[in-house]
């Protein structure tokens, strides 16, 4: 998949040239491209003088980063303790069945990536589902969430 190298350069240029900026830059890649592209890592390694192996290791370590392209929308099912007690695993199952994917996977049409996340700190909404990091849904009824998911194209 070709990546807009101008965007890559733009993101990198916005940061101080120091190892300290690596994680933030990788996260910006993730936000921009829905994953961390190989081209981006290579460029970063070259410009910052940090071995490619180290940047790649970060990509495999941090959960916020994905090395595979993810969907246009991320559907995060919170599996924090409160959500677990209130049936989060059922919510995961129901959404997974509907989208025909397992947590961590992306639908074939690249519409959704389903993720589980260890607590978004919104326990009053438990079990809670967060779409695109901004829309919070109370998950008491998984059916209701399925209805809402239809609004994401």
């Amino acid at each position: 998949m070709a990546v807009d190298t101008k965007k890559v350069d733009e993101i990198i240029a916005g940061y101080e040239k120091s190892e300290e900026s690596l994680l933030a830059i990788l996260q910006d890649f993730q936000r921009e491209f829905n994953y961390v592209p190989e081209e981006g890592m290579e460029k970063l390694s070259e410009l910052f003088g940090v071995p490619a192996s180290k940047i790649y290791a970060m990509g495999t370590f941090y959960k916020a980063l994905s090395l595979e392209p993810t969907g246009r929308h991320t559907c995060k099912v919170c599996t924090g303790t409160a959500c677990h007690l209130k049936g989060a695993s059922n919510v995961v199952d129901v959404i997974g069945r509907q989208l025909k994917i397992r947590p961590g996977e992306t639908t074939k049409d690249m519409r959704f990536t389903l993720q589980t996340v260890n607590c978004v700190g919104a326990c009053a909404l438990a079990p809670v589902v967060v779409v695109d990091d901004k829309d919070y849904y109370e998950g008491a009824s998984p059916q209701n969430i399925l209805k809402n998911l239809k609004n994401y194209k």
Binding site: E38, M41, P51, A52, S53, K54, I55, Y56, A57, T60, F61
Partner: peptide, 24 residues
């Protein structure tokens, strides 16, 4: 630094970036 420790937890293993032949 041709190799680094990849992944986390149980899947931790040494390897090259993208498991490709490393230029470094």
């Amino acid at each position: 630094s041709a190799i680094s420790m990849l992944n986390r937890g149980y899947e931790k293993e040494p390897g090259t970036p993208y498991h490709k032949a490393s230029q470094a």
